[in-house]
């Protein structure tokens, strides 16, 4: 079990719900991953339409916790209003706060992010800020009231995996008591295992599972990788060495003489 903001969660994997081939595959992937938190969004509903109802009833049937997002918001005002609308519909004060600052990289507008985080934290939200791996921004987000941070490891949907291990390691070292969730950029289970080995508390991913040839199999693989990485982090890994060290004991080795 993993305690996140006072809530006990059985898995350290948080999963997005977008881009799956079908609702049935989404449901199976959520189950196979073992996740207990999924992200959702809010979008315009057609007059007389019931798309939202169908999706919402599917998510509710999965028995998982909801982390609504403010995806697509480019201003503080948009993000704050979307967060409030999400709380009104989903009945949770958890919000994945995104304030996008660049169309090409989808990197966060960290200035707007800090401002929006302050407004929402003061309003009682538990803000999960989608941020970069910048330590100064991370500090400002904590000052604004955030209790958890979600740094990217590469641009959203890029599948590049951790492109700046040093920055992630530094972040973990600077904020030892803060839950850190790597959000965005993971492409393979080994990427997830790598950041978990660094001591990150959890990962959030979507595209790597949803766009895999077999999303259900990939969801299961990510679930295992996250678990393996976490257990390795807690088990004391060897540091790399420049010389070979025999693993089989040399003591008692037979000695054969050439005739």
């Amino acid at each position: 079990m993993f305690e996140l903001l006072g809530t006990m969660l059985p898995s350290r994997l948080l999963l997005g719900t977008a881009q799956y081939p079908s609702p049935a595959i989404l449901a199976d992937a959520v189950k196979a991953s073992g996740t207990s938190v999924v992200t959702v969004s809010l979008r315009r509903e057609m007059a007389g339409g019931r798309a939202g109802e169908k999706f919402w009833s599917l998510i509710r049937s999965l028995g998982v916790r909801i982390l609504p997002n403010t995806a697509g918001c480019h201003s503080v005002k948009e993000a704050v209003t979307t967060a409030k609308m999400a709380r009104d519909v989903f009945g949770t004060s958890w919000i994945k706060l995104e304030v996008i600052g660049n169309h090409d990289t989808l990197q966060p507008d960290v200035f707007g992010l800090v401002e929006a985080a302050r407004i929402l934290c003061e309003d009682g939200f538990m803000v999960f800020p989608y941020t970069t791996d910048d330590l100064v921004v991370a500090g400002r987000l904590l000052e604004a009231g955030c209790k958890v941070l979600m740094p990217w490891c590469a641009p959203i949907g890029s599948a590049l995996g951790p492109v700046n291990i040093m920055a992630l390691r530094s972040m973990r070292g600077h904020f030892p008591g803060v839950p850190l969730i790597v959000d965005a950029g993971l492409g393979r289970p080994s990427h997830a295992a790598t950041v978990m080995e660094l001591g990150f508390d959890a990962v959030l991913l979507n595209t790597a599972v949803a766009r895999a040839a077999d999303p259900v199999g990939m969801a299961r693989a990510f679930g295992k990788a996250v678990e393996a990485g976490r257990e390795a982090f807690g088990s004391g890994m060897l540091e790399p060495r420049d010389v070979a060290v025999p693993s089989t004991p040399t003591f008692g080795r037979a000695v054969f003489h050439e005739a």
């Binding site: 997005g16 992200t39 969004s41 809010l42 315009r44 939202g52 109802e53 999706f55 609504p68």
Partner: peptide, 10 residues
């Protein structure tokens, strides 16, 4: 007026 409903999200 904006009228929104739950949708898939990452």
């Amino acid at each position: 007026i904006e009228i929104l409903s739950p949708m898939q999200g990452g």
